[in-house]
Design a protein around this nucleic acid. Structure first.
Lengths: 247, 247
DNA sequence: GCACGTTTTGCACGTTTATGCAAGTTGTTA
DNA sequence: TAACAACTTGCATAAACGTGCAAAACGTGC
């Protein structure tokens, strides 16, 4: 394994869980803790993380405010565009993911929506919404993905028929389609897509053109791609995907 | 667990409840109170909190009302007593309710617990706990009860067999037993009790001796009643209920 | 092929940090 | 004031840390 690749994985873990433990990483990569500490030290001096006794945590808001704000802003714009797809009285599934969390926050009021989600954080946000029906798709919670997975989740999904699915995505490629990092994740996402009339994907720029190991959905099953207007969208448009460009 | 992570959790608790108790934190993190006090001292010198006898309070906290403080304090004490029932490796169901939310917050770390809940707010709290397995019992969310109900919830519950159930209660009477205000609620609670070896009820004083329309559980099926020591408990003790008096 | 420099990794060493315990002190309450 | 809980301080121990160094892997130029 390349050291750069290892650092990338550590960084992913950091941004996902907010923290990493040196001992765990050493065991996971089958390396000495010295090597992991060296990685963390280098990443810390590059501002990518913050060393703490025992491991490292994601950089404090101060150092990374600009990038974080920018991403939050992009997701908010995607969310505003995404909710324009919805009509009063419809049923919508919302998959896990930070962009989809932004969509949940942006759901318009008094549209008599029914919302189903397998993400506990989205469910928690929507518990405060007396103007819509909330259906929690339960199952075994996976901390890495922030979502419930497993046969229970798929069974709960199969009791519904939604008008729209907002699908979270790990990778999105013009030829391969939607892919995920985890087999169980891929199964649940595919089930959600099967029990929804239409599927929409709101995606931030850095995920366009990337792939992950497990296929979820072919691109011709994606009815709407929501993204900021950017050159990377062209291959998708050429593939016949209906793109909704957020302003 | 990283010490930085622990301090972060303490700070979250501080901003949420406005105060923390050293003894509770020590129990929850399975550390000596000395260590917790050291943390609080360091956080205080950094201006993150203000030391008080027994724990710490938020720096510029605008104080909660007396009544709210009192109820929160009672629930916290009940929670502290409730979690002493748990043994490492056990599976526990947690029903909805503010007292049970306090129990979820008080779950000790690194006990290899499996926790299942039909309350989205409890699920949300436990998503941050990497040291336990979380199972979300989905279904249709009822805003009035803060819980998921319905056949989906019962089906999800029936896939489990728990060691303990922490049951929320609307009414608790020495002769009638546990009762609820809603038929669907009663069904789900009864199902949870059926798929748990033992049932514990942590209850604040004002609910003792009250009843609601829908029966849930006879008193002889309640293995532990957790409450502050008070005269109202006497009829329950006389009925043969094992009472755990919180200090 | 061979010499050379670079990168990566593990190990040894001394240092720092986190934690629990003991002893003595301070604060709270009856 | 007496009893008790919470507190501070000092100390011992174990874990994690940083640094220096050497071995191995790798590429590069001759």
């Amino acid at each position: 394994m390349l050291t750069a690749q290892r650092k990338q994985i550590i960084q992913n873990e950091l941004s996902r869980a907010g923290r990493v433990v040196a001992r765990d990483l050493a065991q996971r990569f089958d390396l000495s803790e010295d090597t992991i500490r060296r990685d963390l030290r280098q990443m810390a001096s590059a501002g990518l993380c913050q060393r703490v006794y025992g491991g490292a945590v994601a950089p404090s808001a101060g150092g990374l405010t600009d990038r974080h704000d920018h991403l939050a802003d992009e997701k908010q714009r995607l969310a505003r565009a995404a909710v324009t797809l919805l009509q009063p009285g419809q049923t919508v599934m919302i998959d896990a993911g930070s962009t989809n969390t932004a969509i949940a926050r942006a759901l318009p009021v008094n549209m008599n929506l029914t919302v189903a989600t397998n993400a506990p954080d989205i469910a928690q946000i929507l518990t405060g919404r007396a103007d819509l029906r909330l259906i929690v798709l339960g199952g075994h919670y996976h901390p890495d993905l922030g979502a419930c997975l497993g046969p229970e989740t798929r069974a709960a999904t199969a009791t519904l028929q939604a008008d729209w699915l907002f699908l979270g995505t790990c990778g999105l490629d013009p030829t391969v389609g939607v892919t995920g990092f985890d087999a169980g994740e891929a199964e649940v996402k595919a089930t959600m897509a099967a029990f929804s009339d239409r599927t929409a994907i709101a995606v931030t720029g850095e995920k366009l053109g990337t792939t992950a190991p497990f296929p979820i959905l072919r691109l011709d099953r994606v009815h709407r791609l929501i993204a900021l207007d950017q050159p990377e969208l062209i291959p998708f448009v050429d593939s016949g995907v209906s793109v909704l460009a957020a302003d």
